[in-house]
Design a protein around this nucleic acid. Structure first.
Lengths: 228, 228
DNA sequence: CGCGGCTTTGATGTTCATCAAGTAAAGTGG
DNA sequence: CCACTTTACTTGATGAACATCAAAGCCGCG
């Protein structure tokens, strides 16, 4: 029977629909494991062996590198339907970065060898996966380059618009990250993140209440982001 | 006949050897075109349609983004056997970046649709390509993150070691890039690139004569790069 | 209740970009 | 081949942007 694995709404449905036979779908789903993580939980760490193929079913996670005892760099934020392990699953035996949950999250995993076998036996599947992978890497590189060339105000504006436009799709949201994590995401100090958020608040560009953020002047934010 | 296409030493030999039948190899090679570019030539530009699969047979090229009339960012430098178009060939119809030659270069291209067909029909080939792609993206992301977290002296040290260790495999080499391009590669101003190179020269860490660079104290450079 | 982590603001100093000016090198047209 | 123009390289002076340091308030949690 198809879909006995309860993946009706799973990304694999879309990704594999045209490409997998019912049997293949069943075989893959049979190896599926689902795991819940609470906000703050570590999902895996840099250096660990890559053993399963992961994707984010629900929640929000960060991919980051440890750069010393007190410093880390957030490389990317993954949202539902992102393939968390995609970035380096095929390039290396070990993870190049760590992943932890920014919100309560559900991760689905399937057997990695089986995915590899499926790539080899099913060309359409391989092609689809390749596209996903390519877009994913492109997005990360693009983001980093965009942030890099901006000044601090531009970076804050950019990241606020990112949360609003890409993650939450609304102008008010609860920040899933601490001020410090914002700093790690856009390469600046915690103090300056706070300073510039205060500045924006005083100028009436945003409203803030703890983690709650409201973008009141998206037009201005866009200008600041572009000018930066 | 196998290898009638003169690709004996071609990277495809290695990549496809185990995975392609003689016929497949022949078919692919039949679409092959080779093109020579002089130092400074544009190979393709941001926004152009992706039509062929490219790899660098000989020479050195830069991948970069235009950020305004007078600014660009170098994303990566590709050396022989790198798949120049790999980073976004499957993710988008159009190039996300421009490529031009840093040294006289030879580019081989093959029909993109044929590559896609081969991915679909030959799983081992798909898997190999995926690994390449994954490593390539990883390398770019890793490099950018490494550079990002360093101060200016650390960046210069890092990039000098990069040319020495990764590109030329010797401690003396002729810089393939201008001071300005170094600046675009590691995110700083031309003036400061020059200043720090002079500083290193005065401290006896390197010798310079125009584009000719000799790393006299690699140990110190490593320290500076790591400390940065 | 007190401890540690997160947030906030101010004061200070460093790093780095910008501006300016000049030299060297490399391409261009007569 | 030489004047001419342009581009690359170099150095110094200045100021702006940003990190660091310090101190205090806040909040959740054992």
């Amino acid at each position: 029977m198809v879909n006995s694995c309860k993946c009706h709404n799973c990304i694999f449905q879309g990704l594999l629909f045209e490409s997998l036979s019912d049997e293949q779908m069943e075989t893959i789903c049979a190896t599926r494991e689902e795991e819940d993580y609470a906000k703050g939980d570590h999902i895996f760490e840099e250096g660990h062996r890559v053993e399963r193929f992961l994707y984010l079913k629900d929640g929000l996670v960060k991919l980051y590198r440890q750069c010393g005892p007190e410093r880390s760099q957030i490389i990317s934020i993954a949202k539902p339907k992102d393939f968390v392990s995609l970035l380096n699953i095929f390039g290396s035996e070990h993870y190049q970065y760590s992943v932890s949950a920014l919100e309560d999250s559900t991760i689905c995993t399937i057997d990695l060898d089986l995915v590899k076998q499926t790539i080899e036996s099913n060309g359409a599947f391989a092609m689809n996966l390749m596209k996903k992978m390519s877009r994913s890497s492109d997005g990360v590189i693009n983001n980093i380059c965009n942030i890099n060339k901006k000044n601090l105000r531009g970076r804050i504006a950019y990241i606020l618009l990112y949360f609003s436009d890409t993650i939450y799709k609304k102008p008010e949201f609860e920040l899933p990250v601490s001020r410090r994590e914002i700093a790690e995401l856009i390469g600046m100090t915690t103090e300056n993140v706070i300073r510039i958020l205060s500045e924006f608040r005083k100028d009436g560009i945003i409203r803030t209440n703890g983690k709650l953020i409201g973008l009141q002047r998206q037009d201005l934010l866009k200008k600041i982001a572009d000018a930066g």
